[in-house]
């Protein structure tokens, strides 16, 4: 199912989203994040393994911070896929449970779902995994939805634009 209409080409839409995703969100580009799938209120994003992101040089395991950035970005992206408009959002809080270390040298994926969009607040959940069905971390996040009249452009699939609460 495409939320962009029955004729929309998903690959072309993903390419467009990813262009915005990177140009508007330098940290996403720096980490090499790519949206690989979407649905209404849902997004899947890949974090490619990189030795730059290692937290323990003895084991090669990724630092939790890289997983945090992935989960934050994916939850924010799911909210945008629910909003379907570039309304600025700001992360209120993000809770992450680390279930097990990521296996070195393998990419990490996160799938997030925005399961409730209220007038002011959006609620999202995400799971990070390397193999489907074998989660390495879970996240729960809430976002403030900007009030009407704000014109600041928020990135599609962005990180949750921390500075839009002013």
């Amino acid at each position: 199912m495409s939320i962009f209409g029955p004729d929309a080409d998903k690959a072309a839409i993903l390419e467009r989203i990813n262009r915005t995703f990177c140009s508007m969100v330098p940290h996403n580009e720096s980490l090499g994040l790519t949206m690989t799938d979407y649905d209404e209120g849902a997004a899947v994003i890949r974090l490619p393994y990189s030795t730059r992101l290692v937290g323990n040089p003895d084991t090669g395991v990724l630092h939790g911070g890289a997983i945090t950035a992935l989960l934050d970005a994916t939850c924010g992206a799911a909210v945008f896929m629910k909003l379907m408009s570039p309304i600025p959002i700001a992360t209120l809080d993000l809770r992450i449970d680390y279930l097990k270390p990521a296996t070195p040298s393998q990419d990490v994926f996160a799938r997030a779902e925005c399961f409730k969009l209220a007038r002011n607040v959006a609620f999202a959940r995400a799971i990070a995994y390397q193999t489907a069905g074998d989660p390495i971390a879970t996240a729960a996040a809430t976002f403030m939805i900007s009030t009407p009249g704000k014109t600041a452009m928020a990135p599609i699939g962005g990180d949750g634009s921390k500075a839009t609460d002013g």
Binding site: V25, P26, H27, G65, L94, I96, M153, P155, K162, T164
Partner: peptide, 24 residues
């Protein structure tokens, strides 16, 4: 550093970088 930015139009730091800083 520029690669820490999460919203280029504001600009603002990426929430993930703040989480990583606090965790570290």
């Amino acid at each position: 550093a520029p690669h820490l930015v999460g919203n280029a139009s504001l600009p603002a730091l990426h929430g993930g970088t703040l989480g990583a800083l606090l965790e570290s």
